[in-house]
């Protein structure tokens, strides 16, 4: 069991070392997230003012879209010299590799959110600091759910043809609950009168979603990854 977490940690640290060196995924993903905010602002801003709930929607669209980009790039790196296969040869249960990659993606997405969330807050007058912990809970559980499904799919698409298109094709329908919960929960938090029970309901649903899908992903990783 200690081997399991040791290897997961090692894989994550390796991913972050590479990323810190090039910062390629971070910069491109971040820029892409900002582009999403900009593009969607055109459809949700009328006469200089954003429609109700637009901030929450735009925020989660930016997270989901840029997350897909980060997932694709992270696993593209492992394809370069077929290093994902080298990781699969590691003497630990294979789900450890999944966990390591998942943690790496989560750190990356967290850094992107660290910039995009305040940006959305400023541009759409969203009260970010009114209930910081609830916002944090929504972001954390939502991002985990999205990345948990995304990491498994991106890993297994590594050996499929047309993987670049197939990742969003598979990922978005399955993560619909995350998007709904993230958007509605955040909207409940951003509205004039904060609907706290509503926020709690959505966080609870996201926690359930995360628990089910992380378990399922750990469980299916080995059979799906054996060619």
């Amino acid at each position: 069991m200690t081997d399991f977490f040791r290897i997961a940690w090692l894989v994550m640290r390796k991913d972050l070392t590479i990323e810190v060196r090039s910062r390629e995924i971070l910069y491109t993903t971040l820029f892409f997230a900002m582009s999403c905010v900009l593009v969607f602002a055109f459809s949700f801003v009328k006469e200089g003012r954003a429609l109700d709930d637009a901030a929450a929607g735009i925020l989660w669209i930016a997270i989901a879209f840029s997350g897909t980009l980060a997932l694709g790039r992270t696993f593209e790196r492992e394809r370069h010299a077929e290093t994902l296969r080298a990781l699969m040869m590691a003497p630990a249960d294979r789900p450890a590799i999944y966990l390591g990659k998942l943690m790496g993606v989560l750190v990356l997405m967290a850094v992107v959110e660290l910039i995009v969330v305040p940006l959305v807050g400023v541009m759409f007058q969203a009260p970010l600091l009114a209930h910081p912990f609830q916002l944090l809970a929504l972001l954390a559980t939502g991002t985990l759910g999205f990345a948990a499904v995304g990491t498994l799919f991106a890993a297994m698409l590594g050996r499929a043809r047309s993987r670049d298109v197939l990742l969003p094709v598979l990922l978005y329908p399955i993560t619909v609950p995350v998007i709904i919960a993230g958007v509605r929960g955040t909207a409940a938090l951003f509205q004039a009168e904060v609907d706290e029970p509503m926020v709690r309901t959505w966080v609870a649903m996201l926690v359930f979603f995360d628990a089910v899908f992380v378990t399922l992903a750990l469980w299916t990783f080995e059979p799906v990854m054996t060619e």
């Binding site: 090692l10 590479i18 010299a81 077929e82 290093t83 296969r85 590691a90």
Partner: peptide, 29 residues
């Protein structure tokens, strides 16, 4: 107990030679 030298070499081009070996050394415990 298995060592594989594959055609694709299984090295991270972004890491240094030392880092590659250290990473895989630790991976194998």
């Amino acid at each position: 107990r298995i060592g594989l030298l594959a055609h694709d070499l299984h090295l991270y081009p972004e890491l240094t030679a030392g880092e590659n070996l250290e990473f895989f050394g630790r991976l194998y415990g």
